[in-house]
């Protein structure tokens, strides 16, 4: 493999971490040889963002147009066509993110580019193999792509480090000029910031977090009682917020909050990677789960393989005793 292109991801005037994670992986795959190409679609006013990109790519191709400020897939696709037809590369990397999931499969389908999604590793010795997870992270799959002029992988956020990306002297190639076409079939309107709730879990030192294993909204007080005894707050994983057992602003994970408490107690949380992304920075992680193979135990410091409905009341009792 000689040339790898990375589609830069940015939002609200910030380059997102996934960009650097992909650039780092691209450099690693090329082992110092070859060419890492950063592809940037954006508005002229966002040109400043390129200063963060160009040092880490041998070449940065930027399509600058006032209509590319916010992501609109039809317009982005038209802009990407120009890049696609003029940039020679064997592999394109995009994020398996809200942006990439809304863009990459359409690009792949349009040009019949061999692709796979949500990869956690890429091996490119003679043939390209992608490693991706199935069955909620319980099984890994080694996937081969049909040989093609170009191939495309979307990369899981957090799969590769965003730090210590090689610095190279890169050139910037700008493409300007209006994108032709009618793109009114889907238009961006605005961003909606997350609702502010009564409790800000990102500020808590102690978090008691509940997952699918809590089984019912009526059981939330069991966790609340433990949190009260510990002087902490109750948070949750996605299924609990989806079922409206707790408000969305209590959700920890990729699409919710990122927390770094002193202690994080995960009750009945299997530990999908999206959840782990939001809590792996906690100083101490304690997991209670009936399933000894739950992925949460691979990230927790301490674990109890047992029924949370037995463990939590016993623990709450002990804490209350201690506090007199």
């Amino acid at each position: 493999m000689e040339k790898i292109a990375v589609l830069v991801e940015h939002r609200q005037n910030e380059v997102r971490d996934i960009t650097f994670e992909m650039l780092g992986k691209a450099h690693q795959l090329l082992e110092g040889g070859g060419e890492v190409i950063a592809l940037f679609l954006g508005d002229v006013s966002q040109k400043g963002l390129l200063d963060q990109i160009t040092p880490h790519a041998h070449r940065t191709v930027a399509y600058l147009d006032s209509n590319l400020k916010d992501f609109e897939p039809l317009r982005y696709q038209a802009a990407f066509t120009n890049i696609f037809e003029n940039v020679d590369c064997q592999l394109i990397l995009m994020g398996q993110t809200a942006f990439g999931m809304d863009f990459a499969p359409a690009i792949a389908a349009k040009w019949k580019i061999p692709f796979t999604t949500d990869v956690v590793d890429i091996e490119a010795s003679e043939e390209l193999h992608a490693i991706r997870q199935m069955y909620s992270g319980k099984v890994n799959a080694k996937v081969s792509l049909k040989p093609g002029e170009k191939m495309l992988c979307t990369v899981r956020a957090g799969a590769f480090p965003a730090e210590d990306i090689p610095t190279v002297s890169g050139e910037l190639q700008e493409i300007t000029g209006a994108i032709e076409g009618d793109f009114s079939a889907r238009t961006f309107v605005e961003y909606l910031e997350a609702a502010v709730g009564d409790v800000d879990i990102t500020q808590a030192d102690i978090i008691v977090s509940v997952g699918r294993g809590i089984k019912d909204a009526d059981n939330i007080p069991i966790a609340q009682e433990l949190a009260d005894a510990l002087g902490g707050v109750v948070a949750c994983s996605r299924p609990v917020a989806d079922k409206k057992w707790l408000p969305k602003e209590r959700q920890v994970g990729t699409s919710g909050k990122t927390v770094k408490p002193k202690v994080y107690i995960a009750l009945g949380i299997s530990g999908a990677f999206q959840h782990q992304a939001g809590m792996k920075g906690a100083n101490t992680i304690i997991a209670v789960n009936k399933d000894p193979k739950a992925p949460i135990f691979s990230i927790a410091h301490y674990g109890i393989v047992d029924d949370l409905f037995k463990v939590v009341p016993a623990l709450t009792e002990k804490v209350k005793e201690l506090r007199g």
């Binding site: 309107v189 909606l192 910031e193 997350a194 969305k248 699409s255 919710g256």
Partner: peptide, 10 residues
């Protein structure tokens, strides 16, 4: 989107 952010589209 990520981090509790949402986007409105038509």
């Amino acid at each position: 989107l990520e981090g509790g952010l949402e986007e409105v589209d038509t």
